[in-house]
């Protein structure tokens, strides 16, 4: 989703003001506060009445990908989103979420938490893109719940990072549910914390979690990636980081926990620098050192 095409968004909010909620036949989209009032069952997810956020209830098969867009343009804006997405049984949906600044703005914060419920036999492809000005604090925190045979392909990608970024995801998989989660972040002058937890609760469930993190320009990365196998299930954690700056630090902690003798969970982790061989190869194709580094980084983040 392109930030310039906000008019395509089915839910669009700027600062604290909802600019657009599209009418989609198969989907009910409401401000979270309205959903809290309209559907009492939603309160078990929302808890207290939310101040802002979106409620998306996919009841039937939509014909187009769903898009949400949340922006900050003003100074000192403190967003606090509480979102709820529910996908009914047997549907196949694509969701694109974009959050970021569309103007140079300062001292803003974007805190978003939410629940994503994917019911039996449904398949969700979710692309979550962020792009922020440096002087912001951003904290997305989501819980995904995959019912039997549900599938989730989730990518979180940030190309322009704020000074503080904290990304948390917890995914619970019931029987035969499958999740693929990718966290792709290019940190520049950023304190980045991420924690993703996959719980393989049901028999036959499986999960793959991949982290690709760039530590550039005085960044600090702490990444915890966890996989809990509570049944006969399989999972893999793949954590990789490239350090492109002398003043940056990276800590990657993959953790696999197995509570079932039929389960198999594995992990790999690596932290390295940009390969001199690759760099020189691209320079002998006429790219400057900077262009070559940017291309290698974009390739590293393209998985």
């Amino acid at each position: 989703m392109d930030m310039k095409n906000v008019n395509d968004a089915h839910f669009w909010q700027v600062d604290h003001r909802i600019k657009r909620i599209a009418d989609v036949k198969q989907v009910e989209i409401l401000p979270s506060s309205s959903a809290w009032e309209k559907y009492s069952w939603s309160r078990k997810y929302f808890g207290e009445k939310p101040l802002e956020g979106y409620f998306v209830w996919v009841k039937e098969q939509p014909e187009i990908p769903l898009q949400t867009c949340v922006n900050i343009v003003g100074r000192n804006i403190k967003q606090k989103f509480r979102n709820l997405l529910i996908v009914e049984e047997g549907l196949k949906i694509e969701l694109q979420g974009f959050c970021g600044n569309i103007a140079a703005c300062f001292k803003g914060s974007h805190r978003a938490s939410g629940n994503i419920i994917i019911k039996k036999n449904s398949n969700v492809i979710y692309r979550h893109y962020h792009s922020w000005e440096p002087d912001n604090v951003v904290e997305p925190n989501y819980e995904f719940f995959l019912e039997e045979n549900a599938k989730l392909d989730y990518v979180y990608k940030t190309t322009h990072t704020p000074k503080i970024l904290s990304v948390r995801n917890k995914i619970t998989c019931l029987r035969n549910a499958k999740v693929s989660i990718k966290i792709l972040v290019n940190c520049q002058k950023t304190q980045f914390f991420t924690e993703d937890t996959v719980v393989l609760k049901g028999e036959g469930s499986s999960g793959i979690s991949k982290l690709r993190l760039i530590a550039g320009k005085e960044s600090s990365i702490k990444a915890y990636s966890r996989m809990f196998a509570q049944s006969a299930s399989s999972g893999h954690l793949d954590c990789q980081s490239l350090v492109t700056d002398k003043g940056s630090t990276v800590k990657l902690v993959p953790e696999v926990v197995c509570d079932n003798k039929e389960a198999q969970v594995t992990h790999e982790a690596s932290i390295g620098k940009i390969s001199e061989e690759q760099l020189n190869y691209l320079r002998t194709r006429g790219l400057t050192k900077e262009q070559a580094i940017n291309l290698i980084i974009s390739g590293f983040l393209r998985i």
């Binding site: 061989e277 690759q278 194709r285 006429g286 790219l287 291309l295 390739g299 590293f300 393209r302």
Partner: peptide
């Protein structure tokens, strides 16, 4: 022995150069 450049399709590199 050219090195692998992961995540960069040949088409993309050719277009750049």
């Amino acid at each position: 022995h050219p090195p692998v450049v992961k995540g960069v399709p040949l088409k993309v590199l050719l277009k750049i150069i």
